[in-house]
Simulated scan of single mutants.
Amino acid sequence: MKRLSLLLAAFLPLAALAHEGHVHGPGETEAIATGPVVLSEEAIKNLGVQTVEANLAPLQRTIAMIGRIEGLPERLAKIAPRAEGRVAEIFVKLGDRVTAGQPMLRFEPRTVGNPPVILNSPINGFVVRQEASLGQALNPDTVLMEVADYSQVLARGMTFESPDLSLIKPGQNARVRLDVFPARLFEGKVQRLDVGLERESRTFEVYVLLDNPELQLRPNMQASVAIAIGDPQEVLAVPQRAVLGDLGNLFVFVRDGNTFERRNVVIGMKAGDQVEIVEGVLPGDNVVTEAQYQLQFATSPAKKAEAVESHGEDGHAHGSEKSEHKHMPTWLWALGGFVIGGVVFGLLLRRGRSEEAEVR
């Protein structure tokens, strides 16, 4: 039994080795990089980083509205017969471009002896409605076609009740941005506006006249309308897309060479796609406008190396000494200990029985 005790005492240190080389303690995580981020030219190119210089610019306070494009009522013509009859011939189709005086269709009056009548377009424009069919019976109030001129259109903006509504006047400058052309800004003027609020929706509508020489603006396109009110003021401004974060915790990224610094900012008035920076950016700073979202998660190569080295020192060393051997999993140490213990115990048990037999 004395020998058994000595062997067990020699085996116990093996169990302690199972703890040596333990890597991660509870709650240990990879360090998060903070402070300015330094990137290589290749990384900057891959991210597609773009910047603009923050400068003083004249901004006016604006009222923002949701809106859509509509045709002008005074540039819409309806084609209808003045007597009963039937359609005998159709000269145009939906979408055709027509000129004032161009024949649209021919119909035969019901009254015997009356000659056929040609209906012409009263304006230049496009056929936007075509309801006529050959042999169709006609009444004087039957609208057969519509022609619209879209060389100018209206952006109808809608907003809710506000004290600022009294500041909107015909002739004021307005800017319109369309969902289908997000990079383009269309400028126009307020042409007409409601005299009161809609009874049910409590909304107020403003109509902005826009030139449309390329006919890119079509009815029912979704738009956002911004109407300038007040006098312009010289303020430090940047594009609104450069500002990230939530209200009360806004920030931008400022580039200096290959270094990108995150700065908290305070904003002021907004005008179109520009926003006033009250605090956090200086004139001449290069503010990131593209890839700013990715920069939130970027880490400098040097900081990555420091994090790896620090992680190794904290996780692989006890005290001030670093572990110099490869660590085996704890469960493997435990399994080896149990196997060795079983073998030793079996040998000792067998030896003890042999000694008892000799004594007898």
Rank of each mutant, 00 (worst) to 15 (best):
E290T: 13
P301T: 00
G85Q: 03
I79C: 08
F181P: 06
N124Y: 09
L134M: 13
V98G: 04
P213C: 06
S300T: 02
L4P: 11
A132V: 04
F297T: 12
F204H: 08
M328F: 09
I168N: 06
F91M: 12
P13V: 04
A155S: 10
A183V: 08
V128C: 12
S151E: 13
H19V: 12
Y293V: 15
T51W: 04
V37K: 02
E234I: 09
Q292L: 03
P36C: 02
G25T: 00
Q222D: 11
S201R: 14
S133Y: 14
A302W: 00
L39M: 02
E306Q: 10
V266S: 06
L215E: 08
V288M: 02
V87A: 10
R68S: 15
H22A: 14
T29W: 08
A271M: 15
A132R: 05
G346A: 15
D246S: 11
V98A: 07
R75S: 14
L76S: 13
G319P: 03
A155V: 03
P219Q: 06
L244H: 04
E261K: 04
L349A: 11
V238N: 04
E84C: 05
K78Y: 13
D194M: 04
G268E: 01
L215R: 11
I90T: 07
W331A: 09
Q292S: 07
F11K: 09
A18S: 10
E313R: 13
E41K: 13
V143L: 10
D285Q: 02
K322H: 14
V208E: 10
I267T: 06
G337C: 09
R360W: 03
N212H: 03
E20Q: 13
N173E: 14
A183W: 08
N258M: 02
G113I: 02
V308H: 09
E108W: 11
N173G: 15
K326D: 00
E131T: 11
A148V: 08
Q102T: 12
L17A: 10
E279N: 11
N55I: 11
G125I: 03
P73N: 05
E89N: 13
G272A: 03
L185Y: 09
E74Y: 08
G342P: 02
P283M: 00
V252C: 04
M221F: 05
A334H: 08
G85T: 03
P170Q: 05
R184Y: 07
T299Q: 01
D231K: 09
L250C: 00
P26R: 10
A100S: 13
R129Q: 15
A271Q: 13
R350T: 04
R192W: 14
R199I: 12
I168H: 03
A226N: 15
E200C: 05
G21P: 03
V235M: 02
L59M: 07
Q294T: 01
T289N: 06
I69R: 03
V52N: 08
K304Q: 08
A57H: 14
G113M: 06
L347Q: 09
M104K: 06
E309I: 15
E30H: 12
H327E: 12
E89A: 11
L236A: 01
Q216C: 12
A174L: 01
S320C: 02
W331N: 11
P283R: 00
